[in-house]
Design a protein around this nucleic acid. Sequence first.
DNA 1: GTCTATAATACGATAGAC
DNA 2: GTCTATCGTATTATAGAC
Lengths: 210, 210
Amino acid sequence: MSRKPKRIRDAEVTKAQILDAAMEEFAKYGLNGARTENIASGSGVTKAMIYYYFESKETLYQEVLNQLALQLNELGLAKLNLKELHPEIALKTAVYEFINYQATHPKFGRILWHEALQNQGKYYKQIDWNQSYKYLLEILEKGMKQGCFRQLDPFLTAMHINGVCNFYFDAYENIKHLTPNIDLRSPEMIEKHAEAAIDFIMAGVVNKGE
Amino acid sequence: MSRKPKRIRDAEVTKAQILDAAMEEFAKYGLNGARTENIASGSGVTKAMIYYYFESKETLYQEVLNQLALQLNELGLAKLNLKELHPEIALKTAVYEFINYQATHPKFGRILWHEALQNQGKYYKQIDWNQSYKYLLEILEKGMKQGCFRQLDPFLTAMHINGVCNFYFDAYENIKHLTPNIDLRSPEMIEKHAEAAIDFIMAGVVNKGE
DNA sequence: GTCTATAATACGATAGAC
DNA sequence: GTCTATCGTATTATAGAC
């Protein structure tokens, strides 16, 4: 009579594995669509463990969002010290890093889109995302003040820049059908997107009249 | 003994009402998240009617996507005869009309985002969206050939333009929390977005060196 | 063509043994 | 700390009366 081998008991490890699998599942289906059974099997534990470490599926989801915000602030734009650079260089760098982040962390954007669409931003609201967003605003405002950027609405411009960077990745599952012969996820195409996006954005923002 | 008044029997009307309510529900929650009960109550019929007129929730969803593609082709860019205009005017018009379409048909973008995210474009693939997408490509290519647009990758540029137009609307539920004092859905703000988007896109595309 | 009632199942969450 | 077994409910879909 062989039994299922029992798991090594390690709270830290188990909790981290659940969070990882949860991020994967939430990225695919969002809070509502995610299945606790999938999170359990994805992390190699039973469903009951999820409720031992986290109060509910909802709490687990909130924790995933928290982790996301932490990761973004750590790995993201903070360490680049963009404020001290020339606005043009700062903006180019920020856009490049942001696209790179999207390419290497595809779950990030997807979770936030699911959040906006199916939860109407209910949980997004509970988390402070401002740091990363404000960097971009500051760069734009500084560039306008210095005259190297055109006079634009900083908020709308930030949204437009975001759209240029994001759409390629987050609408991928639809637009891949428009170009069946091109692998939009290949490093070469992503690099092309990054270059074209930077070119497009800079042309849209930089003041050529000087 | 009062009874629930029976519905007037009219197949056409009932079917249309179900489709309307379904579009509403799918726009909110996508195929998986949508509840047939909500679609039923939203259209004033019972759940059984959905299965009488449509094979299943899935079939109903496919029909909604079909309707969407039809509406887009009818109301959209086709009637503008953009090919005969100067590329700059054509692009400005296309962007303006597209933003206007998004503003007046918010369900359109939401359904497609849900489709990309939760179904990985499985049903999107079954429908021909090419017309509307190809208009934009043709405008860009014509402008580049004539020299009034810069030499850009037409496909990537089309994606970037799409991102500029869309993000404002489709990420609304998240970004509204970033600007609690501004109503991003007011006609004034949408008009500002449209103007800024056109300005941004034209600056990114038009060849200034001539 | 429309309804009520219900079958069948999937899923979040919990109890309790080990 | 981890497991198995199960409860309770929500939900898609169908059967059958009117």
